[in-house]
Amino acid sequence: DRYEFNINGVHFTIDDAEEELIKLIEELLKRGARAEEIEEVIRRWER
């Protein structure tokens, strides 16, 4: 599934997002994580 979200006006799209990654990102968003922090999480996840 495609997952899309915005952080401070920056648009992100993840194709074939796994449910666990989506939950992790949503938790980070609730905590007010910065875009750079979430980008790093996504990079690590994709390795």
Rank of each mutant, 00 (worst) to 15 (best):
E36C: 07
E39H: 15
L28K: 08
A35I: 15
E20P: 10
E18A: 14
I22A: 03
V10D: 06
L21Q: 03
D1M: 10
V41S: 08
W45Q: 08
L29Q: 04
I22V: 10
D1Q: 12
F12L: 05
V41H: 07
F12A: 01
I22S: 01
E39C: 10
I25G: 00
I22W: 04
R44C: 14
K30N: 09
K23G: 09
E19D: 10
A17L: 04
I38S: 00
W45T: 07
R44M: 14
I38C: 03
W45H: 15
E27Q: 11
L24E: 15
H11D: 10
I7E: 02
E39M: 14
I22Q: 03
H11T: 14
R43M: 10
A35Q: 11
A17M: 03
E19K: 09
L28F: 08
L21M: 06
F5C: 04
R44A: 14
D16R: 09
L21S: 00
R31L: 12
Y3F: 12
E40W: 05
N6Q: 14
R2I: 12
A35W: 10
E18I: 03
Y3N: 01
G9W: 01
L24W: 08
L28G: 07
R43S: 11
D16F: 13
I7R: 01
K23T: 10
G9A: 01
E36D: 10
L24Q: 14
T13S: 13
L29G: 03
I14D: 01
T13K: 05
D1L: 14
K30L: 12
I22K: 05
T13H: 09
I42Y: 04
N8H: 06
F5S: 02
V41A: 12
I42W: 02
W45E: 08
R2Y: 09
E18Q: 13
E19Q: 11
V41C: 10
V10F: 06
D16W: 15
F5W: 03
D1G: 15
R31Y: 11
A33Y: 04
W45G: 07
T13I: 15
T13G: 05
D1P: 14
V10S: 05
K23L: 14
E19Y: 09
K30W: 11
I7S: 05
I42P: 00
A33G: 07
N6S: 10
D16I: 12
I25C: 03
E20V: 07
E39T: 13
L21E: 02
L28Q: 09
E27G: 12
A17I: 06
